[in-house]
Nucleic acid binder design. Structure first.
Lengths: 221, 221
DNA sequence: TCCGCCCTACCCCCTTGGGTGTAGTAGACT
DNA sequence: AGTCTACTACACCCAAGGGGGTAGGGCGGA
């Protein structure tokens, strides 16, 4: 498995605001000739730019950055057309964060305090297209899947407020924000706020997805 | 019926690029105290601006103007939030034009060569919320409804080209133009062209409407 | 051969959308 | 009294959408 030197090495971009941690990963990767550090970024925007420019096989993405959270960064990566693997890399072992990240399309979720050997092994797995999760999280993950106490980020109509449901309905009817505003007698800016909120709650990326979802769910007043 | 002077008169805005014709209508309306000319516009953009500013009860809209066709003007009026009646006013007695206008949401279709008496009568009807059609067109209209030879502007998947159907599918999946371009390996500009064309063919106003329509129709490859 | 449609690509223009942030008000619950 | 959520509104910014137009290559039918 480790002998993949005849193949081209898997290129990895790390996006993390901690220089020391980037350095650590960098040194870890240098020891493996089938894993190659494609680049580093200290903030999300720079990271997204680099990812689209370098097009690495994998992005190792810090979930908690001051400028932008990892979920948002992941979204923007996908929006930008990045097609490689995106593995979350974080200190948070909260079930909520794990579930949220995976629901948002992350290809893996690794903890920063994990064993270097396991780290390398998991990265290798990820580069092969497998979804990876830190071993210490598997129990927690199983629990999350069984007990249904994971309301956050669940695309559920009930997570929306009454007003947001109204806006979603009009939106799905094909109305623009301006038209919705006129119809509900509020400003366009307020409509935008509601749309933004419902997109976030439903974990969708555009009003088109929201409209299609609403239609398929058969949402009604 | 003519005695509605106790009510406020119905205000009418005329949008037509022929000054003489505007003058004619103007004089015709002056003779009726229940019909009031709210304003005139010689080109579509000015007309739209005026309509939104004056908010007349009815817009008399030339179907054939050099700057912008009447259908497009009608769309923009509705997009702008104009909620009054929009009656097409034209020389064209082509079935295609009539059907197209009515399908696009026009509240009436009157011919410019119609009898002044009928004209006034029809305008009065329109101001009451009734749909009006020049009498000389009724036969033609009936025929159009019976014989189904009205492909133009019929929201039909078969009116789309293969490529347009592909784009519609991706669009309905929530992909942006850029993502569709990447997926189909063409430029974003070309995707925009296809989207523009399919919206026109399906007589829809936005990609959201297109997406919802596609989903409801159960469009597949 | 010429015409027309399809697909592609590009130009210009302006509007719309979606994100950031701050902030005020009202009602409900602690 | 304090806090939380919902709803409203506005600022700014940049990306995306949608309209107009022109144009060239390919392909098939008149």
């Amino acid at each position: 498995m480790t002998d993949t030197t005849t193949e081209h090495p898997a290129t990895i971009l790390i996006i993390d605001d901690h220089p020391l941690l980037r350095r650590g990963v960098s040194q870890l990767l240098e020891l493996e000739d089938d894993l190659l550090l494609a680049g580093e970024a200290g903030d999300p925007r720079e990271g997204i730019r680099l990812a689209l420019e370098l097009d690495p096989d994998m992005v190792l993405l810090d979930l908690n950055m001051p400028q932008m959270d990892g979920i948002e960064t992941l979204k923007r990566l996908r929006d930008g057309g990045f097609a490689g693997r995106v593995v979350m890399f974080t200190v948070s072992d909260h079930e909520e964060d794990v579930v949220n990240a995976l629901r948002s399309g992350a290809d893996g979720y690794l903890l920063k305090d994990m064993d270097p050997d396991e780290m390398v092994r998991q990265l290798r797995q990820a580069s092969l297209g497998r979804m990876v999760i830190s071993e210490s999280l598997t129990a927690l993950l199983a629990e999350a899947l069984c007990s249904q106490r994971n309301q956050p980020a669940a695309p559920d109509i009930h997570s929306l407020t009454q007003r947001e449901r109204e806006i979603l309905l009009e939106l799905a009817a094909g109305l623009s924000n301006k038209m919705i505003a006129r119809k509900l007698e509020i400003t366009e800016g307020t409509v935008k706020v509601h749309v933004k909120h419902l997109l976030k709650k439903l974990n969708l990326r555009s009003r088109v997805e929201a409209a299609v979802w609403a239609v398929q769910e058969g949402i009604e007043r």
